[in-house]
Design a protein around this nucleic acid. Sequence first.
DNA 1: GGCCACTATGACAACGTTGTCCCCCAGCGG
DNA 2: CCGCTGGGGGACAACGTTGTCATAGTGGCC
Lengths: 347, 347
Amino acid sequence: MTTLSPSGPAAGQRKVRRATMNDVARLAGVSIKTVSRVVNDEPGVHPSTAERVLAAIDQLGFRRNLSARNLRRGSSTGTIGLVLEDVGNPFYSGVTRAVEEIARLRGRQVISGSSDEDPGRERELALEFCSRRVDGLLIVPAGLQHSYLVPEMRAGTPVVFLDRPAGDVVADTVLVDNIGGTVEAVTHLAAHGHRRIAFLGDAPDIFTANERLRGYREGCVRAGIGYHEELVAMGPHDESTVVTTLQRLQSMRDPATAIVAGNNRITVHILRALAGVAEKPALVGFDDFELADLLSPPVTVIAHDASALGKAATDLLFARLDGDNSPPRRVVLPVRLVPRGSGEVHA
Amino acid sequence: MTTLSPSGPAAGQRKVRRATMNDVARLAGVSIKTVSRVVNDEPGVHPSTAERVLAAIDQLGFRRNLSARNLRRGSSTGTIGLVLEDVGNPFYSGVTRAVEEIARLRGRQVISGSSDEDPGRERELALEFCSRRVDGLLIVPAGLQHSYLVPEMRAGTPVVFLDRPAGDVVADTVLVDNIGGTVEAVTHLAAHGHRRIAFLGDAPDIFTANERLRGYREGCVRAGIGYHEELVAMGPHDESTVVTTLQRLQSMRDPATAIVAGNNRITVHILRALAGVAEKPALVGFDDFELADLLSPPVTVIAHDASALGKAATDLLFARLDGDNSPPRRVVLPVRLVPRGSGEVHA
DNA sequence: GGCCACTATGACAACGTTGTCCCCCAGCGG
DNA sequence: CCGCTGGGGGACAACGTTGTCATAGTGGCC
């Protein structure tokens, strides 16, 4: 068993220069090109030579320098850039997982970053990835301007937007059926007798928030219960704004008996705010979340699969990398209402 | 508003060569070195010249090629490699988020990948990152052999292991107090009168699972209730193995009245298995999780902060990058029992 | 025995950038 | 008018790798 202790051979000298193919070549008594051939499994190297080279590689701890390789080869860096809103959000970490999975099957490494809904940060991340010459870019847009990506798109770097559309470029986009989902949520609640249905959504400049609001409105109209401004509260929301909003909704002349929550974070805030309350309003949340089925009552949600979203976007990206140059596509993934109990509560 | 449509200037030619500093130099009528100076904000360029260069950069959509830059400069690639078990697990996505945060403050990009508890995959990812010449490496070990990293450590690349220790190298490590946590869990349950306390843990070759088992055993001994083999079930666990295990524990001569769950996934499996059951055993789970407080009964847990873990590890890594070459450190982060109700249930 | 085909290997340039060193020229003092 | 200074800018090599082409040796065939 090899144990590198601090008093071992590494001590004393802080930085040892990394071995290069040149060093390996010298040690093995061959030319650098032969080393390259061995490292890349190219044919035409005598087995005994290869063995000497491998021994030298092992002895020196050589690792091929991918920066140099990518520079020389010019083509693929074997990386995919992923810009999302927040890896910490389970929804996006699910997306990340799916992207990673597929990228792995296709021999690509994912580099990712969180924009935190900041358009400047999104741009910064995306451009950083471009400088690293990623083979493709997956972006959950924070902003509405994406013309900064025009040079990359011209250069043939595929870009796929997910969860939200791009602002001012025409590009592949994978969305979920936000409108259909909230329409269904409202319809479901109305079918259970609710006529005063509130909507708590995220900041309206976020595409999904706005779409879901539209769906809510359309659902209200279709259900014949009308759209009432005072039942809507758009974000940004946090623990305390949700509490005050709920108080307002309860203390109205004609109080809300049901709530549609615009995303998983808002749903959780609502659940927490209602924790002590005996008479809970009915609730349907957009986004499914773990344990929703184990709460009491279990939470009815509009479910859509994070990994399906990630997969669809990544598949599309790889199709482009494989040479598909048909016109940009817009994919809308279906959502489904999962009735669990909270949306069927009677007022 | 610039809109790049498929029939726009990009159509027809599929791949356009990316502009280089050379192209920019030619267009601006300067030498390539001057372009470099402008791009890197080096002094000694006349404002009017800089302006011409910037215009050319903009016109050509030039982005500096980081592969070439890193190759030439040799020093830092501005990246940190993160190998974890599964980004999809909220615990690790919390870690990821914290790492990303700090890396960002220090001007580094994170590249990450999931090992899925596969030592081979862990190694593959880590070596891939090494080939990309990351400035540092954060690893949640899946395997027990890490001597493959000796060359990198010799070359001065700092490596920090987190959540679990490395197998056969001495290196910085950040852990949580697994033993203390399970001791506390058992103590807590025993204090509430439980004498038949079961332990469901992950596969015993996983460091944390093993440590937690040790803590469980020690807790049993200290509480004077003895360690009983038949109350222990080590994983891997899934939905169905948990169900059968629980049945076994219930149908014993002297059934278990309380359970300690070895991690968040197991806790969730148990909760789901017990969902319909009226007489639930007491439960304390290792790892906190969102909504634990909203279940009924709310779930008592051994909490430890994913972001604290990520932060501690990343801080340590950056300290090394800043030149700290004191002997390898082992940091153990405290855990705390969060009593919420499920651990106080009486049999 | 001369020529060819083929295998194993090497020399060299090039990828895009930056560090080093050098040059040109305007301005200024003597 | 000469030499010196300093700002602005360029030529060139080098980073570590790989693609292209060349070459030495070996064995077979007419």
